[in-house]
Design a protein around this nucleic acid. Sequence first.
DNA 1: GCATAGTTGGCACTCAGTGCCACATATGGC
DNA 2: GCCATATGTGGCACTGAGTGCCAACTATGC
Lengths: 199, 199
Amino acid sequence: MKQSTPIPVRERARRAMRAELAMLAQDLFAAKGYEQTTIDDLVAAAGISRRTFFRYFTSKEDLVLGKYDAWSQMLVEGLAARPADEPVWESLRRAFDVVVEYFEDVTLAERSLAMEQVIHDNPALSAGELERISRVQGELAELVGARTGRQAATDPRPTVIAGAALACVVAAKDVWITTDRGRPFGTLLDEAMGALKPV
Amino acid sequence: MKQSTPIPVRERARRAMRAELAMLAQDLFAAKGYEQTTIDDLVAAAGISRRTFFRYFTSKEDLVLGKYDAWSQMLVEGLAARPADEPVWESLRRAFDVVVEYFEDVTLAERSLAMEQVIHDNPALSAGELERISRVQGELAELVGARTGRQAATDPRPTVIAGAALACVVAAKDVWITTDRGRPFGTLLDEAMGALKPV
DNA sequence: GCATAGTTGGCACTCAGTGCCACATATGGC
DNA sequence: GCCATATGTGGCACTGAGTGCCAACTATGC
């Protein structure tokens, strides 16, 4: 049964270390604030050296926004997996289901909400988040373009569709984190995406 | 005829200094690259002290992205000036005319194009640009919400409309700066905005 | 048990950005 | 013109993020 692990030991250790550091850092950020927490604080709490920290994370920002690399991949795979004859807007909405699940996951809710607040309150982090989202946008635009036979490199329309869809996610998320979360994230996203239609 | 100047002397000197520094910096960035140009390089070329530089610009980034403060204001005013019974999407397109003019201005073309390339090639600058755009988005969303009787704070839809419109501007700009500029920016923007319709 | 590849920590460095203070310059009232 | 005051400037020392380099350590394969 146990399929031979394709992930070497060192890589697994590395990932575990990353996860542990991110967790610890996020607790510190939630407690004292992002800017008030220095890398020195973090490495002291983690019992590693500053130099080693920067071998696991390329930047302080990466501690908070690292998850976007995984998201990006999931979103792209999610969209690619949708049937080609489905309306694009619907396909995008379905691809976003992984994000919806993430925000509605009770076990992660507290931590992820706290981090979204941290991002929301910090311009530098917001900027980084948006930049990462724009990378996802580029990848989604490629897929949208492939479906509609339009080159995203020369035709702005696939990029616009992808960008508008992601704007819906961001807008829904903003309402979600700044209000009382009375309405589920999925509902907010449906409402957001219902406000637009590709021509 | 000469209406008494509402701008005090000091403020005018300050603006002139800012403009001169930004020009000089942009020339350096275009020549050696953004990251390769240090603040020390700049202040040496400008003949001022490092400390004084930071009284005119809050950050290195500000040298490139400072124009967004002015843009933001123009866009908001432009949208507010549109008739209330005009379709929102059309009003937004018209508000963007100032941006179109900016990019099609021959005298500024070379410099502005070079700076857009610099931004495009630098993740940190792209991030900053997107963050500033998202601020504009917030302001435009307020106006859109006011028109449609929806609170942007609790309803994602006004934000989605504003975000989608700005996504069109960004998408059109990206095509414009990365291709041969064979088609005018205004045309690209029309095409981009034509790919979406608010429901 | 040994060679070696990969991991870690320490150190010194660069660069952006800030607080503080002393000095210079402009402005307004007399 | 003279002085008090507001504002602008420069220097200095400091913090904090991020990097290059090297020496010491540790795990892995034979």
